[in-house]
């Protein structure tokens, strides 16, 4: 009997392994193997016209944090790298916060419609995804450039006499990022709001909680998993973003994604590019761990 049980569980576990093996294979080929290549590259020296030379070097890693001065060879904390990294962090944090501020009310609005209409509203949220990101970004360019729609309208109606420089600023990058990533915030927040038990809200009102308190004490804590998921979904792609800073930032305000691309292109320094992307990954990972742990403990307090 016992041996039959063992055989059965053995074959069950084999089936399980067989079933997940395609996924495991994809992860190994698609994520782990390239990552190993990048790790290896980051410890090599740059080849003369791109590529790498197979000599061990820690130079790329040193340069992530320190600058060897071009002119007198002294090591200092790298102003360029830190400035670019800081800008990327701030812009993607601002994007996340703005997405939350706009996305939460939107999600709440949709979640409180009657079930038939919800489908329509959700469909509307996904409509922007039907058009290519590049095209939408070019459209934003046309909205906010100096001779663009907004400035022309404002000048024609006499609100301003000189066009406001909006394109090619940090504001433009932020606007573009919020626009692009907003659905990624709305959808998970909606999912968590929709599941909420309406009767809890009624109970709170019956117990004389003011609307603001209902929001703060009940709705937001219960929606926390959705808010966390949405923030992660927005923050991570935003920090590595590449197209938006080029088209809306005008290349004057590089973000880390553009900086990494430059190393693999014109900069011809693949090891440094590899080290930079690994550093970025490490930062995102640490930020995530801190965020999730914090979110968890908070949830338990209320739970």
């Amino acid at each position: 009997m016992a041996s039959l049980e063992a055989v059965r569980s053995k074959s069950a576990s084999r089936t399980r392994w067989l079933l997940i093996s395609p996924a495991v294979l994809v992860v190994i080929i698609g994520a782990i193997a390239p990552l190993l290549v990048i790790v290896t590259y980051s410890f090599l020296t740059p080849g003369p016209t791109g590529g790498v030379n197979y000599t061990l070097s820690f130079d790329a890693w040193t340069r992530v944090l320190f600058d060897r001065d071009v002119f007198d060879d002294t090591l200092t904390l790298s102003g360029t790298n830190l400035e670019i990294l800081l800008r990327s962090l701030l812009l993607s944090l601002a994007t996340t916060v703005l997405c939350l501020l706009v996305g939460f009310p939107t999600a709440y609005f949709i979640a409180t419609r009657n079930p038939l209409n919800r489908e329509v509203w959700l469909l509307l949220v996904t409509v922007p995804f039907w058009t290519n990101l590049l095209i939408r970004t070019f459209a934003i360019q046309d909205l906010i450039r100096n001779e663009g729609i907004i400035n022309t309208l404002l000048i024609k109606t006499g609100f301003i006499s000189e066009p406001i420089q909006m394109l090619f600023t940090n504001f433009a990058i932020c606007l573009g990022l919020v626009y692009v990533y907003l659905p990624l915030m709305i959808l998970p927040v909606y999912a968590s709001l929709e599941r909420q038990d309406r009767s809890l809200l009624e109970a709170a009102s019956d117990l004389y909680a003011r609307p603001f308190n209902v929001l703060r004490e009940i709705i937001v804590p219960l929606a926390k998993p959705g808010i966390i998921a949405g923030s992660i979904l927005v923050f991570i792609p935003a920090i590595g973003t590449y197209v938006t800073p080029i088209l809306l930032g005008g290349g004057r305000n590089l973000m880390i994604g553009n900086y990494i691309e430059f190393q693999f292109g014109q900069g011809r320094d693949w090891p440094f590019g590899s080290a930079l992307s690994l550093a970025l990954m490490a930062i995102v990972m640490v930020a995530l761990l801190v965020y999730i742990r914090h979110g968890d403990s908070h949830g338990h307090e209320h739970g």
């Binding site: 740059p46 590089l254 900086y259 430059f262 900069g267």
Partner: peptide, 20 residues
């Protein structure tokens, strides 16, 4: 023409300082 890799590296450092 393309410069020597060492010099290209020097130039790209300057260009990055400008672009940041």
């Amino acid at each position: 023409t393309l410069c020597d890799p060492k010099i290209t590296q020097l130039y790209s450092r300057i260009w990055q300082d400008v672009q940041k």
